[in-house]
């Protein structure tokens, strides 16, 4: 194993890891937004919204994320959507992970016993007041762990945007293989950096989960 080479390219991989982190953060924020909207639609009292929410989930969970990215990035210009690779990566992955988060958020909300909603409504609270004050604070605590799982998957799936040439970790590894012919070292280095990012995120999620539990 060529440790010296790894040390030499390491700063460039760090830069690439920073791009991966940026991608992950932005994708997670967009994913959470889409997930909250998707869950709101799936739980709406209006059938139209319920249908739209369900359609969103089945389309984006029912096709490969890579195909979704390709359609957006390569197919987009044909229908007038011009995005650079990074933008396409964030939007493509964000909307994709949002479909998974929709189900996570919805699952947490519907797992709160219906007596909670009834108790709140009986006191005179509106639908929204009951949701916001009684249901959501309980559901949010249940969401932390499974959203952490979504986040873990999301970080790994940022590797897909190498295919549309965003210069993140996986793309950088591939590029250095082209010039060094050392795939083992290059992919190992990328793998180690992914692991550090994911481990740190996992710890953060676990910490948050402990913090929000009801004593």
């Amino acid at each position: 194993m060529d440790i010296e080479l790894m040390q030499r390219v390491y700063p460039f991989f760090l830069q690439a890891a920073w791009v991966t982190i940026q991608l992950s953060v932005l994708t997670a924020l967009l994913g959470l937004t889409c997930g909250a909207l998707g869950a709101a639609m799936r739980l709406s009292r209006l059938a139209v919204f319920r249908f739209l929410g369900a359609a969103y989930v089945s389309v984006f969970r029912g096709t490969p994320a890579l195909i979704q990215l390709f359609i957006l990035y390569f197919g987009g210009p044909q229908v007038g959507i011009q995005l650079d690779a990074f933008e396409a990566g964030v939007i493509g992955l964000g909307v994709n992970v949002g479909a998974y988060m929709t189900e996570t958020i919805r699952g947490a909300i519907i797992s709160i016993p219906k007596g909670q909603r009834e108790a709140a409504r009986t006191l005179g609270l509106s639908r929204w007041q009951a949701f916001y004050n009684a249901i959501l604070p309980q559901a949010a605590r249940l969401m932390v762990r499974p959203l952490g799982v979504n986040l873990n998957m999301l970080i790994k799936s940022t590797a897909l945007v190498a295919a549309i040439s965003v210069v993140e970790l996986t793309y950088t590894a591939q590029r250095y293989i082209g010039s060094t012919y050392k795939p083992f070292e290059m992919f190992l280095l990328a793998g180690i950096l992914y692991m550090i990012i994911i481990y740190a995120t996992g710890r953060a999620v676990a910490w948050l989960d402990r913090r929000v539990q009801i004593n």
């Binding site: 016993p113 007596g115 108790a119 709140a120 409504r121 004050n133 009684a134």
Partner: peptide, 29 residues
Amino acid sequence: NQMRQDIGMVFQHFNLFPHMTARDNVTMA
């Protein structure tokens, strides 16, 4: 919602809000 403010209800399974103290359960509404 207005009418229900005048009608108190007590349930078999209490349905207290587990994330609130007794004080907050009483004062929220």
